[in-house]
Design a binder for these strands. Structure first.
Length: 505
RNA sequence: GGGACUGUGGGGUAGCUUGGUCCAUCCUUCGGGGUUCGGGACUCCGAGACGCCAGUUCAAAUCUGGCCAGUCCCA
């Protein structure tokens, strides 16, 4: 594509006009209103992803979309948070190959059963049929564990704690949606080997704590739920998943942590010699995240004007918009370039929008794209040595050039605080208890129910809601649900625990 | 796996029932010119599409069949 160069005079060198960012344009969003988020959530979501230029879904393979420049900026910022938090817990990066021999893939019976229907196969190399067909990884247990068996020999090799961020592939048969249900997944996966079950349990706990920090950076409220037996990860001893509410009674799973016990280490021979000389199998855990996090950020924070990004992952934290002036043509441009330059020097991600569009058109575009803070610089500001700040929620005020970095930092903090408060309020409002099965039907809330733990009752709950029993909370309930008195399905008072039920997106 | 529906420029659409008035409508987008520029500017000129293959017919976006792709519902 040919990049258009502005016909407008550029700021001369030495005034901060030189930009380290490509001056190229972003694709223009269509000038149409978004569908209402409240009543047409899916349509709204798809329109925002498209209009905010996060992903190009026109790639001719279902469920495989193109990451745009703007979307990549968000993804890199998001990944940086994941890397920062997981490495803070001692995990180290590795990278395994994408292809797995069928013979290795088939070793853990439940695992292969769980993924059977959704793996891509490579059966030919050039013109020859392969003797052993290769699986394109849907997840990497079966790629890593034969090698883990070589790495782990002694208790001194444990714990083994590694992660990788790679693409995985799943032949999804249902309707695909950008970031949320796709066939090529941008996947973060941590795999660990521990001395024993207690060690693995401790790693699960550590992962829950790490995820709490990540979610804070994204301002995503969530519940950590232990999935019911019938919905745990294929091959797991148990699974804890993170769900965040999006839309009426809908939830999006944004991550999961699994305790494998010895389920994989036995078939893959991940065995070590303990201090007392005995041979033992490692206990394993995994922790998985994906670009669903980005989808959740769009879904949770976005509004009728478009996306809203927390500053931690916003492609640009600040966009600077010069307001042209007929009687002083160069003045606003130079002042705006100066503002952008100073903010970059202070480490901010800044876009200087020198494009030929009118200011109003730029405002709409950057609101659609979810930039936290806009700085307008016109003749008035240029003469006063200020800029006019407007955050994504429309709060407006002057910032002085002399205290620019500090003022911008303060406004971004305030923006992030508001973003988090709004998300928290919406989160809390999305739960409600159901004391009878009748209350579940047609529910527009995520339902908190008392459950006896029996599978039959679980399925009755799912049938009544026409949704899924998400699981039992690992931590405190998000709302005060009242007394835990009797099972919502069978009415018995034994073995009770809280459970959440909703419609997974 | 079973059923229903839908494929028209980059995005969204009108036209399809009753074949011809369609070298296909409108919005948006894209390229160029001019006037503009503090919340989606106006104007002039220009660009861009009937999913694929066959069939019926003087004539197919429109009817028929197959295929491909997608959406929804049910198992």
């Amino acid at each position: 594509m040919v990049r258009r160069v502005s016909t407008r005079p550029r700021a001369p060198p030495g005034t901060g006009g030189a930009t380290p960012f490509p001056p190229g344009r972003w694709r223009r969003p269509p000038m149409v209103d978004l569908p209402p988020k409240e009543t047409q959530f899916i349509d709204w979501y798809l329109a925002v992803v498209e209009a905010a230029d996060l992903s190009d879904k026109r790639y001719p393979v279902k469920g495989m979309n193109v990451w745009t420049r703007y979307g990549m900026r968000a993804r890199r910022n998001l990944d940086a948070v994941l890397v920062r938090e997981i490495e803070a817990t001692g995990s180290e990066a590795v990278e395994f190959p994408a292809l797995i021999p069928q013979t290795e893939f088939a070793k853990e019976k439940d695992h292969i059963k769980g993924f059977d229907a959704q793996v891509y196969w490579v059966t030919r190399g050039g013109l020859s049929e392969l003797d052993v067909p290769l699986v394109l990884r849907p997840t990497s247990e079966t790629a890593m564990y034969p090698i883990f068996a070589l790495w782990v020999r002694s208790h001194q090799d444990l714990p083994l704690t590694v992660y990788q961020i790679v693409n995985t592939f799943r032949y999804e048969t249902k309707t695909t949606r950008p970031f949320v249900r796709i066939r090529e997944i941008h996947f973060f996966e941590e795999h660990t080997c521990q001395l024993d079950e207690a060690g693995a349990t401790e790693r699960v706990r550590s992962n829950l704590a790490a995820f709490a920090k990540m979610a804070t950076a994204f301002a995503l409220p969530y519940v950590a739920l232990r999935r019911p037996e019938w919905d745990k990860f294929a091959g797991a001893y148990y699974s804890v998943a993170f769900d965040t509410p999006v839309g009426a009674s809908r939830t999006l799973q944004i991550g999961s942590v699994h305790h494998y016990r010895e389920n994989f280490s036995v078939p893959y021979g991940i065995r070590y010699e303990a201090a007392d000389g005995s041979a033992k199998f490692a206990h394993q855990t995994t922790f998985g995240l994906s670009e669903r996090l980005l989808g959740a950020i769009v879904a949770v924070h976005g509004d009728q004007k478009g996306a809203v990004f927390p500053s931690s992952i916003a492609p640009y934290e600040v966009v600077v918009v010069p307001i042209p002036s007929a009687d002083a043509p160069d003045v606003p441009e130079r002042a705006a370039a100066e503002v952008a330059s100073r903010l970059r020097a202070a480490g901010r991600r800044v876009f200087l929008d020198e494009g030929p569009d009118r200011p109003g058109a730029k405002y709409f575009r950057w609101e659609l794209r979810g930039v936290p803070l806009r700085l307008d610089v016109g003749r008035r500001e240029a003469e006063a040595g200020t800029a006019t700040a407007v955050d994504r929620y429309g709060r407006k005020g002057p910032v002085a050039l002399a205290s620019l970095a500090a003022d911008v930092a303060r406004r971004l903090e305030e923006f992030d605080r508001t973003l988090a408060e709004r998300a928290r309020a919406a989160f809390t409002a999305s739960f409600a208890r159901a004391s009878t099965l009748d209350e579940l039907a047609g529910s527009t809330k995520i339902r908190v129910v008392a459950w006896c733990g029996q599978e039959e009752c679980g399925h009755r709950i799912e049938a009544a809601l026409d949704g899924a029993l998400l699981g039992t909370p690992e931590e405190a309930l998000p709302i005060d649900a009242g007394p835990l008195d009797r099972c919502v399905a069978c009415g018995r008072p034994d073995g009770l625990r809280w459970a959440l039920a909703a419609h997974p997106l």
